[in-house]
Nucleic acid binder design. Structure first.
Length: 409
RNA sequence: GGAAGGUUGGCAGAGUGGUCUAAUGCGCCGCACUUGAAAUGCGGUAUCCCGGAAACGGGAUCGGAGGUUCGAAUCCUCCACCUUCCGCCA
């Protein structure tokens, strides 16, 4: 959420930034009109309240009460609309972000060697069948398309990725958590994940409860401090959370239907940092560096993409993706994403920090450590051998307990 | 699922119809005293609205909504959440 005062005084800046992100911002004039009406009414209500307090006359008291009732109803109506529109105003993109559609995304770095195979590389679905570590068909049978089983050594591989990641992150000063996989809608909306429309809703809702299945632990990690005041001395606070993630993937029918690249449920290790505004860039670079370090240690080739404004989404001010090499597709595919959301989320969730006696909204940043399904795909495909077996990256060997995952006899 | 108790400022916590401009304590910020610190003293300490360049001034806000009343933190109703006990259960 942006500060309404900022919006009032910088309408053109807000418009320009939103258009750069590809958002329809036609409602901005209505928002400003509602803001004006809302404040006028609030003034009237407060004056009436003050009168009511002082008044001792019976007749006049009743009069005031009646008028107050009308004004309050009107106020509530306007406020509701106002709040709704406020939530639809996207965050500003950072100054260093290129304005433009996703085609303007920039590859800022390519690291590592693309593996050369003297056979036609298989995809993870085939490798998963041959090694018997994935059962996608039965996931579909028991649950639905987009759900899958991980079996046998696959289980150890996923656990290995988690362990490898959290050991590293603890050393880097992160507090590790296993978070709830559900959260009240307030936290979902607070992080900027509200649906643009019901049709495109990405989040599963639990019927009859004020609970959504989380799409990422970002929601539960940022939500940790909802309605709290964080001591400025404690910043930066760094969290790494393990959770399941649920996505309806509405609007992406037909994309990546094969395998487990795009699914409704997966597990992920996610970083969230609360920091002082002036540390934004520094922390963002740190998060990206951690993500790169992990892929370097896995010895898998990757690219770092700096997203143009059109690919930022509502909350992000700046975003980098890492794309890892996927041999079966002969291209790099997204495996991590790290964003700065400035004070967009903390404003919505009323998370403040006290620095020298002053309350300000801290900045939040997030970044993927491992989207475990996608990391597994990358390992399976990049480390595959001709028969469909694959090696375990050196850094994971001790965690998995073996060097190769063999095909099932 | 059943029952009881609770929700007040950064925290603890008082407050059962007007004097609440919300006690008191702690924390934090500033100032004074001090070589420095501690201790002490004084002042401040949230959010929103209006006016103002600012300093500041005025007003509103005691979980949410509704009701009773001239008047509600305080009484009544509903809702949300929290705690404890019971039941069920990994």
């Amino acid at each position: 959420m942006l500060d309404i005062k900022f919006i009032r005084e910088n309408v053109e800046v807000v418009k320009k930034s939103a258009i750069g992100k590809g958002f329809d911002i036609n409602f901005l004039d209505e928002l400003l009109r509602l803001d004006k009406d809302r404040r006028t009414l609030l003034g009237e209500i407060e004056t009436l309240n003050a009168e009511r307090k002082k008044n001792t006359d019976k007749e006049k008291g009743k009069e005031i009460k009646e008028l107050l009732g009308k004004k309050e109803t009107e106020f509530r109506l306007i406020s509701e609309k106002f709040d709704d529109l406020m939530l639809r105003v996207p965050n500003l993109s950072a100054d260093d972000v290129k304005i433009g559609s996703p085609e303007k995304n920039e590859v800022i770095k390519t690291v590592g060697e693309i593996p050369k195979f003297n056979f036609k590389p298989k995809d993870h679905v085939e490798i998963g069948q041959l090694t018997d570590i994935l059962d996608i068909e039965r996931g579909t049978k028991v649950a639905q398309s987009g759900f899958y089983y991980i079996k046998n050594d696959g289980v150890f591989l996923e656990q290995a990725l988690i362990n490898f990641a959290i050991h590293k992150l603890v050393k880097k000063g992160f507090t590790v958590l296993i978070t709830p996989n559900v959260a009240k809608e307030k936290n979902v909306v607070g992080c900027g994940y509200q649906a643009r429309s019901e049709k495109e809703r990405q989040i599963y809702h639990i019927e009859g409860e004020d609970l959504d299945l989380i799409g990422t632990a970002e929601i539960t990690l940022v939500g940790l401090h909802t309605d709290e005041i964080i001591d400025g001395e404690k910043l930066p606070i760094k969290y790494a959370g393990i959770s399941s993630c649920y996505r309806t993937e509405a609007g992406s029918y037909g994309k990546d239907v094969r395998g487990i690249l795009r699914v409704h449920e997966f597990r992920k290790v996610e970083m969230v940092v609360f920091c002082k505004p002036e540390d934004d860039l520094k922390i963002h670079n740190e998060l990206l560096a951690i993500e790169e370090e992990l892929w370097q240690e896995l010895e898998i080739s990757y690219q770092v993409i700096k997203m143009a404004s059109g690919d930022l989404g509502s909350a992000a001010a700046r975003k980098y993706d890492i794309e890892a090499w996927m041999p079966s597709q002969n291209k790099y595919r997204e495996v991590t994403s790290t964003s700065s959301t400035t004070d967009f989320q903390t404003r919505r969730l009323n998370i403040r920090t006290k620095i020298d006696g002053q309350n300000i909204f801290p900045y939040t940043l997030n970044g993927t450590v491992f989207a475990l399904g996608r990391a597994m795909i990358a390992i399976m495909e990049n480390y595959q051998k001709e028969d469909g077996s694959f090696e375990i990256p050196k850094v994971l060997k001790d965690f998995v307990g073996k060097k190769v995952i063999e095909i099932k006899k």
